[in-house]
Amino acid sequence: MTAVTTSTVTAAPAAAPDERPRTRRRALAPGRRLPAARLAGPLLVLALWAAASAAGRLDPAAIPAPWTVLRTGVHLWTDGTLAGDIATSLQRAGYGFAIGLTAGVVLALASGLSRTGEALIDGTVQLNRAIPTLGLIPLFILWLGIGETFKIAIIAIVVYIPIYLNTHAALAGIDHRFVELAEVQGLSRARFVREVVVPGALPGFFVGLRLGVTGSWLGLVVLEQINATSGLGYLMFQATNYGQSDVILVGLVVYGIFGLVSDSVVRLVERRVLSWRRTLSS
């Protein structure tokens, strides 16, 4: 009648091993995280690459050794080519991203806050989304010429769509009970937007923002490799013609750094702004 399991468990630590507590279940969660878990995989790949290069198992014309890539990178940086190309690329992506971000947020708010706005905007954006943006490139070249404007326009479109879609979905998903609360508390329209709409839509906005950031780099790569006379993509495209695989790899590394840094920045901002959320990952 006494507490059978607990008493045997505590009283018999030195007893036979099959007296161990049986209440403990098989752990199905993956368990504790390994230290520096995110870096382990990439570092392993890098090590294999270096080892294979050192052993002479890789064709240096196709896949140059890591140290060759590094040396080329340093060389390109010191003679100024790389810095100039990076600046050009960053400018394109930056302008396009800023325009896309603004358009996405403004359109989402207009469409989420008024039925007229929704009728005019939502269908149009959904239609725009159905057309692969990169398919618009030929038309945009005809309209805007082959200069910077068309590149920025394409990047802006690639960016605004995910930001619009996710922000709009988050706006539509704001709990109706909070709208009711705002009415009861007598909030003005502007205050309702500030206190309820914007904070409520932020989680969705950040999802869109991260997709938009990735999209801006994707658009940049495509645009620079087909129609450019400067920029990282152009540098890589030229390298193809001269068989400089190390230069191509330098370009890829820089693109990778762009993507990683921008995503980390967005995630950092997201964590600070959405600190009220206690999700599973925290």
């Binding site: 009970r177 609360l181 309820v196 904070p199 009220w276």
Partner: peptide, 9 residues
Amino acid sequence: FQDSRLLPW
């Protein structure tokens, strides 16, 4: 209301 309806943010 039945729920406290505090804005979580």
